[in-house]
Amino acid sequence: MIGKLFATGTFSLLYAFTGELFPTLLRSQSYGVCSVVSRVSAVLVPFLLYLGVLYHPIIPYSMMGAIVVGAAVGMFFLPETKSQPMPDTMEDAKLQNRFISKVKC
């Protein structure tokens, strides 16, 4: 049940966060693309779990962990949207990306 809670929560956050990243002209298309990607990944998960049955039980866990780490690293490159106006045009979205702080290791 906790896993279902987190899966539903992340799907809800997808809609809340996607609306802030894209300009008004592309917002509905971006919702559609994010929804399609999430549904396709939900269809592929049973096949990923079947790889653990066929070959080695650690394969699904390592692949899911790699995807999560990749998503976490990708979040560092998203623009900051707190206290920022939502972009209305593509020019506004490009200006929003100018203020991304560079990740320092």
Rank of each mutant, 00 (worst) to 15 (best):
M1G: 14
M1A: 15
K4M: 00
L5R: 01
L5Q: 05
A7C: 07
T8V: 09
G9H: 05
G9W: 05
F11Q: 10
L13E: 06
L14W: 01
Y15A: 13
A16W: 02
F17Q: 14
F17K: 12
T18Y: 06
T18P: 06
E20K: 02
L21Y: 09
L21M: 11
F22N: 02
F22M: 08
P23M: 05
P23F: 02
T24Y: 04
L25T: 12
L26S: 14
R27I: 08
R27P: 04
S28M: 12
S28Q: 10
Q29W: 07
Q29P: 01
S30H: 05
Y31R: 06
G32E: 07
G32W: 03
V33D: 11
V33N: 12
C34K: 01
C34A: 15
S35T: 03
V36K: 09
V36W: 11
V37F: 15
S38L: 14
R39K: 13
R39E: 13
A42H: 05
V43T: 15
V43L: 15
L44T: 01
L44F: 04
L44N: 02
V45P: 00
V45N: 01
P46G: 11
F47I: 02
F47S: 04
F47C: 01
L48Q: 04
L48M: 09
L48T: 02
L49G: 04
L49T: 01
Y50F: 14
Y50G: 05
V53Y: 06
V53T: 06
L54K: 14
L54T: 15
L54A: 12
L54H: 08
Y55C: 05
Y55T: 04
Y55N: 01
H56Q: 09
I58P: 02
I58H: 03
I58R: 08
I59S: 06
I59H: 06
P60Y: 04
M63N: 07
M63R: 07
M64R: 10
M64L: 12
M64E: 09
A66H: 02
A66W: 03
A66T: 11
V69H: 05
A71I: 00
A71E: 00
A71P: 00
V73H: 03
V73P: 07
G74H: 12
M75F: 08
M75L: 12
M75W: 09
F76D: 11
F76G: 13
F76S: 12
F77V: 06
L78D: 08
L78T: 10
E80N: 06
E80C: 01
T81P: 01
K82A: 13
K82I: 11
Q84D: 00
P87W: 01
T89D: 10
M90F: 10
M90G: 06
M90D: 07
D92R: 00
A93C: 03
L95R: 00
Q96G: 05
Q96N: 09
N97G: 10
N97E: 10
N97C: 07
F99Y: 13
I100V: 14
K102I: 13
V103E: 12
C105V: 13
